[in-house]
Amino acid sequence: MKIVIIGAGAMGSLFGGRLAQAGEEVWLLDVWEEHVAAIRAHGLTLVDTAAETSIRLNATTQADAVGQADLVIIFVKAYATQAAARTAAGLLGPATTVLTLQNGLGNAETLAKVLGAERVAVGTTAMGATLLGPGRIKCGGHGPTHIGSFSGGATPRLHDIATIFTRAGIPTVVDNNANALVWGKLIINVGINAITALTGIPNGQVMANAETRELVRLAVAEAEAVARASGISLPAADYFDQVAAVAQATRDNRSSMLQDVTHRRRTEIDAINGAIVAAGQRLGIPTPVNETLTLLVKTLEKTYLV
């Protein structure tokens, strides 16, 4: 299968590397020229507890160089989804599937408007990775990946994709309730990302301290209330326990938002905690903890974004 990954940061590179190792034709498409150049010259280096592995795969900054894809995976930040959708439009063949594994709300809707809902699949992943530098990533936690059709239901193509992912060491299942998948991942991100970004701690320490544990409990409870008021049938009964499990599984990983703050980049706070605040305002549900976390992260951004 020819797979194009738009957004070759930590997670995009992790998926690309694993899929290339499994024998798939993989293209990493990213605007970071130094990263692309390093991969083209030396391969992508995956660092894990066992060893460092160099993987050869295609990498480019130019979408025109790629051609039509069987599968396009979107891994850009939520605020770049519109641009990624336009790029993906140039990669479509007759049966191309476009899969978003991004954080936050609204990404699938943006892709569907540009590409057509029938092409779009959504998913979540508990895999983890940290970008070490150009051409180098560190593998973080391991966990399941769930994918589903944006339009609902499960198609043979999705099952084929799940099989390919699983064979590549990315255990994947097809789920019929895609909207609930996205909300479930959102609530987990609500409990981890902003807190780690503000404190500088890795995922595993979020539940280790009484103070951050209480922040998790309050933020997650607000997000659960907003989800249920939105009519979402959440797949888990208690997301505090879900956050604890994910934090432990990815204990050595630095969240994507913490990585953004460390590298002085714009964060996805508006699509995560900020999305809970916005939905709560529409529904008349108070979300003071998520509002405070959102304001603090945006204040932190203003210290380095000019």
Rank of each mutant, 00 (worst) to 15 (best):
A20W: 08
Q21S: 09
A22W: 01
G23S: 03
E24L: 07
E25C: 03
V26M: 04
W27A: 10
L28V: 12
L28A: 08
L29C: 09
D30A: 15
D30V: 08
D30T: 13
V31K: 13
V31G: 11
V31L: 10
W32E: 13
W32H: 15
E33G: 01
E34F: 02
H35T: 09
H35L: 13
H35Y: 09
H35W: 11
H35P: 15
V36W: 09
V36N: 13
V36G: 06
V36K: 08
A37W: 01
A37I: 04
A37R: 06
A37D: 07
A37Y: 00
A38T: 07
A38F: 08
A38P: 11
I39H: 04
I39N: 03
R40I: 00
R40C: 00
H42E: 06
H42P: 00
G43D: 01
G43S: 02
G43R: 02
L44F: 06
L44D: 04
L44M: 11
T45L: 07
T45Q: 12
L46E: 04
V47P: 09
V47Q: 11
D48R: 10
D48M: 11
D48P: 12
T49D: 14
T49Y: 07
T49M: 08
T49S: 10
T49E: 14
T49P: 01
A50N: 09
A50M: 07
A51R: 14
A51Q: 13
A51Y: 00
E52T: 12
T53A: 05
T53Q: 14
T53D: 04
T53R: 15
T53K: 15
S54D: 03
I55D: 03
L57I: 06
L57S: 09
L57K: 12
L57N: 06
